[in-house]
Amino acid sequence: MTKFIIRRFMDGLGSLHKLVAKCWTWFTNLSFWPKLAAVLASLVAITVAITGVIVASSTIKANESTIQKNEADTKKAAAEAAQAASASASASLAALPSEKAKNIDGSSPDALCKNDFLEWATFNFVQPNSEKPATTMRVLGSELCTSAWVHVFNTLEGTRVEKTIERIDAPDLKGHQESTPNDISTNLTNELNKNSFSMQVFAPGCVWVSFVLTRVDSGEVLWEVPRQQVCKP
């Protein structure tokens, strides 16, 4: 194989040598003016070829520079857009809790919030010699409304219910408290009168609750739930 390649190479050199010899013989047989024209034509052809190479090289470099600039501009624009989007999202998220709190704090837990409530905590008051709770306090929360409230079911006639729910201050959200200090149980033959509830507070996390059950006539405290923290499960 190596000998074949060498032989082909030598044959090619021989053919090239013959071609050059023929061209030289042709050129030497020309008169002065044809020779001069041939030389000038060769110089022009060489100049045109060199110029074409230079122009092509410059064009390629210019195109490469333009492409690199466009890529840099695209990356910069994408980075600025991402930064702006991140800042906008952060601002929206930061503003969201306080904006929602304005609509939730102090509002009544309507059907929308009640439909998906969860029971965060339950407290029962059972009188002596009884098996069923006389009074039940429940802390309820709605995932949909991001709210919480206190519901009380009280079967004791002539009693006063005081219930409190509170969201404490946070770095990005001011606290809020709802309290019903004077819910008096009367005419408990009507089942609806046994139920009472506080207004809602915006509650993305935990709340603080307390409860006091007293007799209306004497002020005697029958049951108390000390202030404590309750968090959604």
Rank of each mutant, 00 (worst) to 15 (best):
K18N: 08
K18Q: 09
K18A: 07
L19H: 15
L19G: 13
V20F: 04
V20M: 13
A21L: 10
A21V: 06
A21R: 13
K22D: 10
K22V: 11
K22H: 08
K22E: 10
C23L: 12
C23G: 06
W24I: 15
T25P: 01
T25L: 05
F27H: 00
F27G: 02
F27Q: 01
T28E: 05
N29H: 14
N29E: 15
S31G: 10
S31R: 09
F32K: 06
F32C: 09
W33N: 12
P34N: 03
K35P: 02
K35A: 02
L36N: 07
L36Q: 10
V39E: 04
S42G: 11
L43R: 10
L43D: 11
A45I: 08
I54S: 08
V55I: 15
A56L: 14
S58N: 15
S58F: 14
T59N: 14
I60D: 12
K61E: 10
A62V: 14
A62H: 14
N63W: 05
N63L: 06
S65H: 11
S65M: 07
S65G: 08
I67C: 10
I67Q: 06
Q68M: 09
K69F: 08
N70L: 13
N70T: 04
E71C: 05
E71W: 08
E71S: 11
A72V: 04
A72D: 12
K75Q: 14
K76S: 11
K76M: 08
A79R: 07
E80D: 09
E80P: 04
A82L: 13
Q83T: 14
Q83F: 12
A87Y: 11
S88H: 10
S88R: 08
S90V: 13
A91N: 09
A91T: 06
A91M: 09
S92W: 13
S92Y: 14
S92K: 15
L93G: 09
L93E: 13
A94V: 09
L96K: 13
P97G: 03
K100F: 09
K102Y: 04
N103G: 08
I104P: 02
G106Q: 03
S107Q: 00
S108M: 04
P109H: 02
D110C: 05
D110L: 04
A111Y: 11
A111R: 11
A111W: 13
L112W: 12
C113H: 05
K114V: 11
K114C: 08
N115H: 10
N115M: 13
D116H: 01
D116K: 00
D116Y: 00
F117T: 12
L118F: 12
A121N: 01
A121H: 01
A121W: 03
T122G: 01
V126F: 00
Q127H: 02
P128N: 00
E131R: 13
K132Y: 10
K132N: 12
P133T: 00
A134T: 02
T135I: 05
T135N: 04
T136H: 03
T136Q: 06
T136L: 06
M137E: 07
V139P: 01
L140D: 02
G141N: 02
G141H: 00
S142M: 01
E143A: 12
